Simulated assay, not measured.
Amino acid sequence: MKLNWGHGILVFFVIFFTWIISFVVFSLGENNDLVTKDYYRQGAEYSLKMETDKRSAVYKDSISIQNENTGVKVLFAASLATDGVEKQIYFYRASDKKHDVTLLVPSGQDGIFIDGDRLVKGRYNVSVSWGKDEGKYMVSKDFVVR
Results as ranks from 00 to 15, higher is better:
138 M>N: 09
132 K>N: 14
9 I>V: 12
144 V>M: 05
87 K>C: 05
100 D>P: 04
65 I>Q: 01
21 I>K: 10
127 S>F: 03
69 N>Q: 11
1 M>W: 07
125 N>C: 07
95 S>W: 02
16 F>V: 05
71 G>I: 02
89 I>H: 02
5 W>H: 14
146 R>V: 10
89 I>S: 04
59 Y>E: 05
46 Y>F: 13
54 K>H: 09
52 T>P: 05
121 K>F: 06
56 S>D: 03
145 V>W: 01
6 G>K: 10
57 A>Q: 00
107 S>R: 08
2 K>R: 11
77 A>H: 05
110 D>T: 00
123 R>D: 14
121 K>I: 03
43 G>A: 02
139 V>L: 03
54 K>S: 12
94 A>D: 07
33 D>E: 09
93 R>H: 11
42 Q>L: 07
65 I>Y: 00
125 N>L: 12
52 T>K: 11
43 G>P: 01
24 V>T: 10
59 Y>N: 07
99 H>W: 09
116 G>R: 08
110 D>W: 00
79 S>P: 02
146 R>G: 13
93 R>V: 04
113 F>K: 15
69 N>A: 14
132 K>I: 09
3 L>V: 06
97 K>Q: 13
29 G>S: 13
140 S>M: 06
4 N>M: 12
51 E>N: 13
131 G>S: 10
139 V>G: 02
78 A>Y: 01
107 S>W: 03
127 S>P: 05
109 Q>I: 00
145 V>K: 04
96 D>C: 05
18 T>P: 03
50 M>A: 15
26 F>I: 00
2 K>Q: 10
137 Y>M: 08
121 K>A: 15
73 K>N: 14
138 M>T: 08
140 S>N: 05
30 E>M: 11
101 V>C: 05
23 F>T: 09
15 I>E: 08
145 V>E: 01
93 R>E: 13
7 H>V: 12
52 T>D: 09
91 F>Y: 08
17 F>H: 10
145 V>T: 01
82 T>C: 01
85 V>G: 08
93 R>T: 06
96 D>P: 02
71 G>Y: 02
144 V>F: 06
